[in-house]
Amino acid sequence: MATPSEYPKQVIYCGVCTLPPEYCEFGGTVKKCEEWLEENHSDMHEKLYSQEVIEKNLSTLSIDAQKRAEKDSQKKAAKAATAEAKAQEQRATSKILIKRIERNKRKYVTAVQGLEAFGLDIKKVAKDFGKKFATGSSVTKVPGGGEEITVQGDLSDDIYDYLTETYSDIPEDNVDCIEDKKKKVPS
């Protein structure tokens, strides 16, 4: 048993795949993990990715199992790569819509759609909107499926600025402001 002073043990986690670096090789993003480790913890990189270690690792498996493992890891890597490409593409193409909806002549609500595609938690963003602009802000269901944030008041320009400023991974071109003139027919 080790002495209590050694605890808690500090474990380094990979910045790319979040696993302890030892397990990066099973993650599918080995290349990136390796680069990250070299940059951030070069001593550990040396320990894990030196030629000897790799050879030793391979020698413990039978040739047949090696081949299978190889194939498996390749498949995994390919999968991870395509998933990432897909996510990126989606990010590039998806749009955020900021809609100004007339509610009652001079009164407006602002609806924001499409934030989920950028990996944002819309519930949290809605709360932030409410705090920032001091208005009511809620997540509402859209009839066609999905959810949007509804903010009370005409805030389309403010929200536009706020979004592009606070969330740096949203390109400005992907945010659209549109005006929805009529929603309900006055009774």
Partner: peptide, 10 residues
Amino acid sequence: IDRGAIRFVL
């Protein structure tokens, strides 16, 4: 566990 099993566990 042995090395061969890691990838299945993960």
